[in-house]
Amino acid sequence: MTYHFGRGRTRWLPYLLLLPGLIAYFVVALGPSLATSVYSFTDATGLPGAPINWVGLDNYNEFLFLGQAARDNLNAVGRTLVFCFFVTTIQFGIGLLVAIVLNQKLRGRNFFRTLYFMPVILGAVIQGLIWSLFLYPLGGPLSQFLGIFGLRSEFLGAQPTEAFAWVIAIQIWANMGTTMIIFLAGLQTISEDYYEAARIDGANHWQVFANVTWPLLTPSVNTNLLLNVIGSLQAWQLFLVLLGYRNGTQVLGYLIYATGFGQTSGSMVTSFRQGYAAAASIVMFVLVLVIGLSLQYILRRREARLMG
């Protein structure tokens, strides 16, 4: 008989040590997720003492098919995908570029690494406040700068497309540091011997990058792509802080928050609909799951092909 961890105490101790983590995972992650899926079939309000009734697929039917609201919801799903695409590609590109630059032996590189990473440690509220002030249309720094050229913008209060683009930019600013750090860590694992060998073979900068750096960065590329895709699909905090509930800008994550907590407009009385919001959450979960698993499958195949 094979004992994975040995015999006696050494056999059960690893399981015991895993137990706290497993309990924590069940309590704070799996349990609430399962509860959300159950809630999605009820009319739960989230209020203690309020009756909870089983409504079957009504919440899903309403979210996906009922009236114009359903089409607005699907538009929010589309907007979420657009947000994901732009955030992922731009953040990935800039993060890689900055990491490569800051991996060189430059003066002050530690300062710049800290500088570029700093937004990550700020909360969404602080990030939103900084950008709200920077983009203040009546005399804010960017407004004054544009004024020099006779240009002006309402920035976050502008047309939904422009406001949405600003949130993409701010999301990238807020999270690019993480992408950069992961790439930096990856770059530092690549042995200098490979570069030296490539240079001896006469490779130029692009050839070195394409044939040495890029393939050997595969684990970092995979990690960053997955983190960026999943993170941007679930984004909602910056939308809340920067735009609030505004037609033409909602993404799925923010729509779920606004619905679940009765927050659409400060001047209108709304309802608590956490059962309905739970159904919307499950829709988002399925979206993230499908995209995440597909991406992971593709990335693993690529990793196997490149790294063996």
């Binding site: 309403e62 009922l66 009236g67 114009q68 359903a70 089409r71 502008a158 047309q159 037609n247 033409g248």
Partner: peptide
């Protein structure tokens, strides 16, 4: 109006008499 109005489920996002739908605040 705002104190009387209750919207039915399924209404779209523009089902209110709001001036903010117009440019420059809306589309």
């Amino acid at each position: 109006f705002e104190q009387y109005w209750v919207a039915p489920r399924g209404v779209g996002q523009y089902a209110n008499p709001w001036a903010s739908y117009f440019q420059p605040f809306g589309t």
